Computed example of a mutant assay.
Amino acid sequence: MPAASSSPSHDQLASKGEAWSALFSEPMSDLVKRYTASVFFDQRLWRADIAGSLAHAEMLAAQGIIAQEDHAAIVKGMASITAEIEAGRFDWKLDLEDVHLNIEARLTQLVGDAGKRLHTGRSRNDQVATDVRLWLRGEIDLIHGLLRALQWALVEVAERNVDTILPGFTHLQVAQPVSFAHHLLAYVEMFARDEARMQDVRRRVNVLPLGSAALAGTTYPLDRERVAKTLDMEGVCQNSLDGVSDRDFAIEFAAAASLVMLHISRLSEELVLWMNQSVGFIRIADRFTTGSSIMPQKKNPDVPELARGKSGRVVGHLMGLITLMKGQPLAYNKDNQE
């Protein structure tokens, strides 16, 4: 008689939360679990994940794929989960890997089998692609507002300085006199282009991959256009392989963000130069500067220096994303967790 196996059963594995446990005879190493889990940084997607899930559930019920009672239970459960997360009472579990499984597991705890039916016709591959797009769309809208406020702030300073004259430079050599207002409005033009680029990127971000499933779609009669309309998206991804693996929109955003930071860095460089005692064009208010512990005569432009420095981080992320994507075959790869 063969010795009894000490390995856990498939049922035991499944009870621990591994959604892929059917072919496995031992649990994941704790080291691998920590290395591959994303929940402690992708939990920021929770609002997008719940919004996408609610739109998906509404469509499943409308298509008769799940019962209306299941839909009602899902809506009620998601409301409870939202309240828990907002109150800081949600128990994020490393064992559940990511934001999607954490929310789905809690939903199933709250509403039973209806929570399991929510995942009908979708995969975590198209789910995360949808979540990132929804989250990024919101971030772009926030950045749009900030860019608009920055332009208005520059215009207000320009209006007060139409008659303020300073030297204009080429090659950093004195060239011709210009109005300080005219100089500031050059940056308004730059940030206006940045705003337009962000809106252009937003159109390509705002497309729905949900329904692509793992990579090849699903036999369930989904109404993807209905979900896109519910989520206020402009259309659906036409190819399922591309839908789950495309991150061009993220690279485009990083490129647009790099240009924003390039312009911020240029403006910061001028503020640092203008504040130097040898130039003396401007004074920066004390509340926006720092001093020296041993040289009391110094007032340092730390804020523009840091803004100039942070541009390197954003440009670095652009290079990182391009490198991340350049070697990936179709379709989804775990690299994209990065």
Rank of each mutant, 00 (worst) to 15 (best):
P2E: 15
H10S: 09
A22D: 11
S25E: 09
P27A: 08
M28S: 05
T36L: 14
V39T: 02
R47N: 08
A51M: 01
G52C: 03
I66R: 00
E69I: 03
A72R: 04
I85Y: 01
I85D: 05
R89I: 01
F90N: 05
K93R: 15
L96I: 03
V99C: 02
I103A: 02
I103D: 00
T108C: 06
T108E: 08
D113W: 10
R133Q: 09
I140P: 04
L142Y: 12
H144F: 09
Q151Y: 10
L154I: 11
E159P: 03
L172D: 07
P177I: 06
F180Q: 00
A181T: 09
A181E: 10
Y187H: 14
F191K: 01
A192I: 02
R202T: 13
L210F: 06
T219L: 12
A228T: 00
T230Q: 12
L231M: 09
L231F: 02
V236W: 05
V244W: 02
A257T: 08
A257R: 00
S258V: 08
L262Y: 05
W274D: 01
M275H: 12
G280N: 12
F281V: 05
G291R: 06
M295V: 09
D302W: 03
L306I: 14
A307P: 00
L318Q: 08
M319G: 15
T323A: 15
L324G: 11
L324E: 13
G327Q: 01
Q328K: 11
N336D: 13
